[in-house]
C-alpha cells in the first residue's frame, strides 16, 4: 500500500527544503526542491513499499543540488585572482558542498543524513549499514574534516 504522494510532500517537504537550503541559496534552493519532488513523483510508483522515504528524498535532493551547483558553475565568470574580501554567501555554500563532496562516502552520507536531513543515528545506521555508534563516529569524523577543509568559518 503506497500512500498518496501529497502526504509525502506534506511530511517531508520542509526537511528537503532544509537540506537544499543548507547547500544552496534562494532561488537555487527552490529549484533543487522542485526538481527533487518532480523526480520523486516520477519514480514514486516504483518505490518499494518498505523504503525509507525521507532518506530516498534526501539522496535525490543531494543529486539535484549538485546539478544546480554544476549548472551555476558553468555560468560562472573565471577570475585571475581570488578576491581577498569575504566570499559571498552563495560561493561559501558552494565551498561547503565541495568540502562535503571530498569526504569519504560513509562520512559524507552520515553528515548529510544526520546533520542536513535530521535523521537520528540509528536510522542513519540502517541506511549505511553498521551500528548507530559507527554512524555517529563517521559523522563526527566528517565534521572534524570539514572544520579543517571548509575554507570559511562556520555559520554561527
Amino acid at each position: 500500500m503506497t500512500e498518496p504522494f501529497e502526504r509525502v510532500v506534506a511530511r517531508h517537504g520542509p526537511t528537503v527544503l532544509r537540506v537544499c537550503r543548507s547547500v544552496l541559496r534562494g532561488a537555487d534552493a527552490e529549484d533543487a526542491w522542485s526538481e527533487t519532488f518532480l523526480a520523486a513523483l516520477r519514480a514514486y510508483p516504483e518505490l518499494p513499499a518498505d523504503a525509507n522515504v525521507e532518506a530516498w528524498l534526501v539522496t535525490i535532493a543531494r543529486r539535484k543540488a549538485i546539478d544546480v551547483v554544476r549548472r551555476d558553475a558553468r555560468h560562472a565568470v573565471p577570475v585571475a585572482e581570488l578576491p581577498d574580501r569575504p566570499v559571498p554567501d552563495g560561493a561559501r555554500d558552494l565551498d561547503l558542498w565541495r568540502s562535503l563532496g571530498d569526504l569519504p562516502p560513509k562520512q559524507r552520507h552520515a553528515v548529510a543524513y544526520h546533520h542536513l536531513a535530521g535523521l537520528p543515528y540509528d536510522e542513519v545506521a540502517a541506511l549505511l549499514g553498521g551500528t548507530a555508534a559507527a554512524a555517529r563516529r563517521a559523522a563526527a569524523d566528517g565534521i572534524a574534516t570539514l572544520r579543517r577543509t571548509y575554507p570559511i568559518e562556520e555559520e554561527s
Binding site: M1, V9, L41, Y44, P45
Partner: peptide, 15 residues
C-alpha cells in the same frame, strides 16, 4: 478515499 485512489489509480496524487 485518497488511499483508494492511490491504490486503484496511481499513487501520483496531488492536491
Amino acid at each position: 478515499a485518497l488511499q483508494e485512489l492511490s491504490d486503484e489509480v496511481s499513487p501520483r496524487v496531488l492536491e
